[in-house]
Write a protein that binds this DNA or RNA. Structure first.
Lengths: 193, 193
DNA sequence: GACATATTAGAATAATCATTCTAGTATTGA
DNA sequence: TCAATACTAGAATGATTATTCTAATATGTC
């Protein structure tokens, strides 16, 4: 049934990642991706309905990898381990780091997106929420809006903030970042929940 | 000398701000700004060399206003007052809040920008640095890289982080944000500097 | 081998915008 | 009133890119 494929999604996503790291988001044109991969542009469109979808899938791939490590840290180590996962992962994945800035989780609920993209976003978010929920229960014995808000700030928002300015200018987050995340962690969790 | 102006910079910047709030950054096309203001596109270009410069000036105007309040808080109140200025200001200026996400301070050092834009960026950054410096000296009696890093995190990065997700989805930051900023503040400043 | 079809090829098309350009127009100053 | 000029007007241009389209080309299946 049909000809054997010479190029697959992975290659195009890989090409897009490379271009993104070198030339920034605007550099990732469909022609650039095709050229980088050595494929004709038709083949890119054969795999991805649109540029938006290609970028979305790149984002999913990266976030999935990031989130996997985060959830493992959250389950095995304690919360601090998970909070520090952000700067560590970013240091180990400099190219991928910039991809994190490309979208927010709920970009895919607004607007027109293919169903599988929407579904992917939903399941990714659910997985994260579930992980954090069960962490909160483990740590505090019960669940509350307040505990969730704080935990999201300490484990997600604060680490991302600490790291963001370095991602934006292609620098490796320095050690002080870990220190600040650590202190924020102890601070916010010292309060009664 | 010459005809009286019917449209000035302020009107175009105001139009751009309105469009940004309603349709997001991509919606701010030069034609949209002209239409919103009721002016012909030629008049927009008579005031701004390019779209980039228009957007830059919008950003400057907003950041300047934000920063003014921040510096006053920093000088008059203590650091906590300044840290909390971010969520407060954003609540009072919902439209302007989104503008903050448009640029980073050092966007204007890289790349081609007119000299006055560069100068504006430099002076704005200098003013902020100066304010923080003198705050650090006032609070700790001396100056150190470490104290500066921490202060920037506590007064700038953490508040921005806490607020960012709400800005991105056009929501008003809830009270918990202030609470988190406050705790982060006490935490990080409890450590010896 | 011939057919069906998944895939390659990439030139042609189309849409979107920023920007330019040429022609008027109102105001100031002489 | 006249000349200089800052400004209005907006149609035309140009550049950039996403996307489409038609024609080949392999490869599995009958």
């Amino acid at each position: 049934m049909g000809r054997k494929a010479r190029y697959d999604k992975e290659q195009f996503i890989g090409g897009a990642l490379k271009i993104l790291a070198e030339r920034g988001p605007a550099g990732v044109t469909m022609n650039a991706v095709a050229e980088e991969t050595g494929a004709p542009i038709g083949s890119v469109y054969h795999r991805f309905v649109s540029r938006d979808v290609l970028m979305a899938e790149l984002w999913f791939q990266v976030v999935e990898s990031f989130q996997r490590g985060f959830l493992i840290a959250l389950e095995q180590g304690d919360g601090l381990e998970a909070a520090l996962h952000t700067p560590r992962w970013v240091r180990e994945h400099p190219k991928e780091g910039r991809v994190l800035l490309l979208h927010r989780r709920d970009d895919f609920s607004r607007g027109e997106w293919p169903d599988d993209i929407k579904a992917h976003a939903v399941s990714l978010a659910a997985e994260l929420r579930k992980g954090i929920r069960s962490f909160v229960r483990k740590k505090f014995g019960r669940m509350s809006k307040r505990a969730m808000d704080r935990t999201v700030f300490v484990l997600v928002d604060a680490p991302h903030a600490a790291v963001r300015r370095y991602l934006e200018s292609d620098e490796v987050p320095p050690d002080i970042v870990d220190e600040l995340i650590r202190e924020t962690y102890y601070a916010v969790y010292k309060e009664d929940l």
